Amino acid sequence: MTGTSGRVGDAVARDLEAAGWTTRGADLVPGPRTTIVGDLRDLRVRRALVHGADLVVHAAALHAPHVGRVADEEFRSVNVDATAALLHDAEAAGVRRVVYISSTSVYGNALVPADRAVWVDEQLPPQPRDIYDETKLAAEASAAAASMPSVTLRIARCFPEPLPVLAVRLLHRAVLLTDVAAAVVGVAAQDTVTGVFNIAGRYPFTRADCVALFDDAAAVIADRAPQVAAEFRSRGWPLPKSLDRVYDSAAAAAAFSYQPTEAALRLLREP
């Protein structure tokens, strides 16, 4: 696995080990689950990582916060070229499958609402808006074109945020890190699953709610998630007036039994 010293990679590697996998991790910096410290653009690092492996989980990348701080050429080198090289070396080493960790950010400008919240499933055509989106999509294409079966998981945002902000995000566009790790473990156990899947939270809305969510999200939340609404009221937090999008993970649920938690309610009820 790549990126094992990062927040997502460490959590995924930990859960894979708990599920019975023996993991070998690579990252630029040391970490508790990183056994190979080095740059994936180094052939020796890649070969040491994939030697004898059955499955490769590729999570290492430059991310959205690096946009504007890192040159576009570096994004292409790390996110695109290194991914292609890793896939090539994995094929040569006899790796049977690859799981590529992508991001819902690749939908880009398609996430901008017009007169209703955007329902974001895998049928929504991506419209990349920056170098991060462009390079993640290019890496997805490399994974899809590989001779070995591949799965791409477009994960929703799962980084720490202020509690009131995170509680709202978890209603429609964020996911718990534990659910991301569970998704990877789930797909790793299903040899026949291939394709691209959104990995997001368990939300109380349907596609039919999109107009109402854009016009009066507070009323929809009070109706569809009354316990969450009550938790917001008890803290004196306003419910959002409008939601711009809802991520849909139904395809992942159908393909490999992905079952995210009711994250917003769980978060608000934690001590």
Rank of each mutant, 00 (worst) to 15 (best):
residue 14 R to D: 14
residue 190 Q to T: 10
residue 245 R to H: 02
residue 27 D to F: 01
residue 64 A to N: 07
residue 25 G to M: 06
residue 115 D to R: 13
residue 20 G to I: 09
residue 147 S to A: 09
residue 153 L to Q: 08
residue 84 A to W: 04
residue 197 F to E: 12
residue 227 Q to A: 15
residue 12 V to P: 10
residue 202 R to P: 12
residue 43 L to C: 07
residue 57 V to Q: 05
residue 194 T to V: 15
residue 15 D to P: 00
residue 172 H to T: 00
residue 193 V to N: 12
residue 238 P to N: 08
residue 135 T to M: 04
residue 216 D to S: 12
residue 78 V to R: 15
residue 213 L to G: 02
residue 203 Y to S: 03
residue 76 R to P: 01
residue 137 L to F: 11
residue 56 V to N: 06
residue 183 A to G: 11
residue 250 A to K: 02
residue 31 G to W: 00
residue 178 T to E: 14
residue 37 V to E: 07
residue 37 V to I: 13
residue 161 E to G: 00
residue 98 V to F: 13
residue 8 V to K: 01
residue 13 A to E: 11
residue 14 R to M: 00
residue 155 I to K: 03
residue 184 V to N: 08
residue 138 A to R: 14
residue 223 D to G: 02
residue 266 R to K: 05
residue 152 T to P: 05
residue 250 A to T: 15
residue 207 R to N: 07
residue 172 H to I: 05
residue 155 I to M: 10
residue 31 G to F: 02
residue 64 A to G: 02
residue 166 L to P: 01
residue 168 V to F: 05
residue 199 I to E: 08
residue 135 T to K: 01
residue 12 V to I: 15
residue 98 V to H: 12
residue 175 V to P: 04
residue 76 R to V: 05
residue 170 L to S: 00
residue 255 A to F: 04
residue 91 E to Y: 08
residue 227 Q to N: 12
residue 112 V to K: 10
residue 94 G to C: 12
residue 17 E to Y: 03
residue 4 T to V: 15
residue 79 N to H: 09
residue 33 R to V: 14
residue 135 T to Y: 02
residue 247 Y to E: 08
residue 120 V to A: 06
residue 9 G to H: 07
residue 34 T to M: 03
residue 217 A to T: 10
residue 221 I to W: 12
residue 156 A to S: 15
residue 237 W to C: 09
residue 219 A to G: 04
residue 29 V to D: 08
residue 146 A to T: 04
residue 95 V to R: 05
residue 63 H to M: 15
residue 3 G to C: 08
residue 38 G to C: 08
residue 208 A to T: 06
residue 192 T to D: 15
residue 218 A to R: 13
residue 170 L to V: 01
residue 228 V to E: 12
residue 184 V to R: 06
residue 234 S to C: 07
residue 31 G to M: 01
residue 140 E to H: 05
residue 172 H to E: 03
residue 125 P to V: 11
residue 105 S to F: 07
residue 69 R to P: 01
residue 98 V to L: 15
residue 224 R to D: 04
residue 63 H to Q: 14
residue 167 A to V: 06
residue 190 Q to P: 00
residue 219 A to I: 08
residue 128 P to Y: 06
residue 118 V to G: 05
residue 71 A to M: 04
residue 115 D to Q: 06
residue 168 V to H: 09
residue 235 R to L: 08
residue 225 A to D: 14
residue 166 L to M: 14
residue 150 S to P: 03
residue 225 A to Q: 12
residue 98 V to T: 13
residue 203 Y to V: 04
residue 66 H to I: 08
